[in-house]
Design a protein around this nucleic acid. Sequence first.
DNA 1: ATGAAAGCGCTAACAG
DNA 2: CTGTTAGCGCTTTCAT
Lengths: 330, 330
Amino acid sequence: MADIAKAVGVSAMTVSRAFRGDEGVNPQTRARILAKAEELGYVFDATAASLRQNRSGFVAVTVPSINNANFAETVRQLSRGLSRNGLQILLANTEYDPEEEERLIGQLLRRKPEALVLTVGDYTRRTRQMLRATRIPVIEIWDLPAQPIRHVVGFSNTACIGRLVDHLVASGYRDIAFIGGESPRDPRGGQRRRGFVEAMRRHGLDDTRLVPAGTAPVGMAEGAQALGALLDSQPETRAVVCVSDLVAFGVISECQRRGIGIPGDLAVAGFGNYEIGRISVPRLTTIDVHAGSIGSKAADLIVALLRQDSDAAPARIEIQTDLIVRESSA
Amino acid sequence: MADIAKAVGVSAMTVSRAFRGDEGVNPQTRARILAKAEELGYVFDATAASLRQNRSGFVAVTVPSINNANFAETVRQLSRGLSRNGLQILLANTEYDPEEEERLIGQLLRRKPEALVLTVGDYTRRTRQMLRATRIPVIEIWDLPAQPIRHVVGFSNTACIGRLVDHLVASGYRDIAFIGGESPRDPRGGQRRRGFVEAMRRHGLDDTRLVPAGTAPVGMAEGAQALGALLDSQPETRAVVCVSDLVAFGVISECQRRGIGIPGDLAVAGFGNYEIGRISVPRLTTIDVHAGSIGSKAADLIVALLRQDSDAAPARIEIQTDLIVRESSA
DNA sequence: ATGAAAGCGCTAACAG
DNA sequence: CTGTTAGCGCTTTCAT
């Protein structure tokens, strides 16, 4: 910046102002500065600006897995909403591991992010401590925890599964099983499993058909395998709710291999409204959680929180979810 | 840091050394410093350290879409390899848009990353200029461009499709179509389409069965739709190669809806070895590009390049790919 | 519309 | 093993 100042014959301060689009700079001077910067191959140093302004322009985000279409969509929309306001995402993958999450959050905080977005999880003691100590806004997403750290943008995983069960019961199904959600590493899966148990009890039905799907992240292969386990242990089952659409698709494909008709012999429901559920044969009944909307709402919240300097009351933004009934349970 | 220094009764320099695990610090002093830091809720400021050390610890990465299991896996392994060496990823999504890519790269460079990883694309003029001007290592991934910017970690999309065509021809197929790759926004898709045309010519077969799948990113829905178009225009087709497994799955599901047997009536091949191809009925013939390995190899390269201060010769690391023959073409 | 001085929080370099 | 000094590249503040 000093080089440009010297070359153009102004002070560094004027160069700085020119770069930030400050009004009070002579348009001609400004043009000469930008031209010289281009000529010299100058690249603005955001690190120095951050240090001086005490504003990093970063928002730190942790997700359990980036390799998941729904989390990816949340991050995508979050990124969109933030970039419009000059904020950039600093993304970290916890791999569904609370210890790794603790390590990553520690690293992220050193970069002085202006806000921290976390996918709800079972935090370690030290993580909780860091989250309590930090003065930046903390936003938990993808669930509605009973005791949130501070702000929340999410939906009730438990209630969503309840709606699926209600739908199946209303359609006449009684012998219903649930696949997944037993992994201690996936709290959202656990909430869904709990939602299943609660809903079945509410209807006075057998709530013990719980089939494990393995350690998170669980995918299609785990679904296919779990169907085998289900048929072995509970062959009278007539409907199955899965912890995600990916698991449900595994179930569908395994049924096709075994000649089990869906929904004739077995109704299937998933969770998350992934693309596969719209294309599979049969199409999949599921819950649309509007993953993108979680991201954009969180972005809006962050922007609003950063505008006001005073601490706002904890926000609790509930995302609307939709039951989508398709051929797999109709 | 000054506060801690005062509270403990040492200089800021000693605090700094204690934090970086410098050997030459009295273990007792060190312990007292860390305890006091904990007590005061001190968080190290990586921005200030970056500015002073002229090392940001960032590696900038652009991908066309984070919402793609293969790119996500590359980023995941890249992140792993880098974090072991104290480097953090600064990720940006180009959304398959060269203009957006230009904007993002400009933003990323201001953060002074120590290296830049790009998914090969058709760069804008200004992007090329920035890439030429920067002094940090630039690594292109996911293809082997004829004229790389500098370093490359990838594979030949063209050659991979050639292997698929060879396999189909060897299996007796002659009337073969290709779905996808016409989108100007997806250079890798274009390379695959070109690979198809070249391979068909090589075999002296009709190379004009090219079905568009729409603007990138193309997914399952586009595949299902393209199958309809293919049957309308080229009903004598006996095998189809798709630009990705997702498109291929769309084809498979649409065939199932229409009662078209795979591979009896139509053989299908995909690209990328996504999870779906291992679970679908029938299982999908495809090319495994080892997406994760692209990431880990790129990480290794970056670490090696940063260790040496001198400019190394451009690296060209070719990733091994595998033809996986499954039921859809057997 | 522009400039001079000071300083953000850390660490390189040197000294002891 | 510890301390002092200076400065990374920018921007705040105050002055003109």
